[in-house]
Design a protein around this nucleic acid. Structure first.
Lengths: 157, 157
DNA sequence: CGGATAACCGACCTCTTCGGTAGGATTTAA
DNA sequence: TTAAATCCTACCGAAGAGGTCGGTTATCCG
């Protein structure tokens, strides 16, 4: 599998937030209820999203989460990266400070390692797909066919 | 990480085989030597490649492995899939017998789950990148810049 | 024939991550 | 002041990653 359920659950969480009018915060409990996901696990995931500046939180009773930006401005590369960590096809891949792609096998001189071409293309394909998809698209897409349960704004359960 | 070192090592192994003239089999030992990879681990990987019909083996002294097809006809989606298993962005994704993409969250009716659009695009990007790259390209690419150690055809060490 | 070489095979082992639980502390609206 | 919510840290079982090891079989060469 390319990604774990962290990305899956996290994206669903974001979509759920994206469904809401936007003014009132949505409690994690209601999201967990709507998506049938374990609340305590979602807490871990939403923490990453918050640290990445994708959602904001308000504590206390009637608190909850809401999107930090309009859904049209949230691209999925940021979401997935917040949840899964840096998107690289392979261990040895990492972005250098100057934005270049490095492969740690190239330490001996700057000769290309035989797999670099391949992983570059793969990474390109993935980031293009992720960066080219906005949260708004997913919200729209999922609300089409679905009489899906939506998180209620009030208290859960 | 999208892929593990299984794909990395396996691809390097294939490239190493691709460098050879083609008639004589290359021993795993010499590949391990050239790429500085553990021989016993490579054995597991090459077994998968063999079962997938990508390499053929000849046993006994002066035995070894060679490509089952010319490098131009080997695309990397087959290689990576043989090593890593089915290429799917997410646990819930699997190809149905008829070639359709399924998402197990859709069991209740055929309504789209909110993440399907995203994962479809990601998978498309990956498979396009993999299927669009041949082993021959990688062999060519790696031999350009490199005074890389090549597996000797004879005995290792 | 008898080594030596190498492919084959399966059991095992350690370490990390995944997916999730538990318990508590803190903030805030009613 | 109490209930609802976020926040935080620790833990835990299962699974996979990345190897290692020992042995078996097949084949060439002298």
């Amino acid at each position: 599998m390319l990604f774990s359920t962290k990305a899956e659950y996290g994206v669903r969480l974001m979509v759920e937030l994206g469904r809401q009018p936007g003014s009132r915060p949505v409690s994690l409990g209601s999201v967990a209820e709507a998506e049938k996901l374990p609340l305590s696990y979602l807490e871990h995931l939403v923490a990453k999203l918050r640290k990445a500046g994708l959602v904001t939180s308000t504590r206390g009773a009637h608190g909850g989460y809401r999107l930090a930006k309009p859904a049209e401005e949230i691209t999925m590369d940021a979401v997935v990266e917040a949840l899964e960590g840096q998107i690289a096809p392979m261990e040895c891949f990492h972005d250098s400070p100057e934005g270049k792609v490095l492969c740690s096998h190239e330490s001996d001189g700057d000769q290309a390692c035989s797999t670099k071409l391949l992983w570059m293309r793969v990474q390109g394909g993935v980031t293009k797909a992720l960066a080219g998809t906005t949260l708004a698209e997913l919200v729209e897409f999922s609300s089409h066919s679905a009489a899906k349960p939506t998180a209620t704004v009030g208290s859960a359960a």
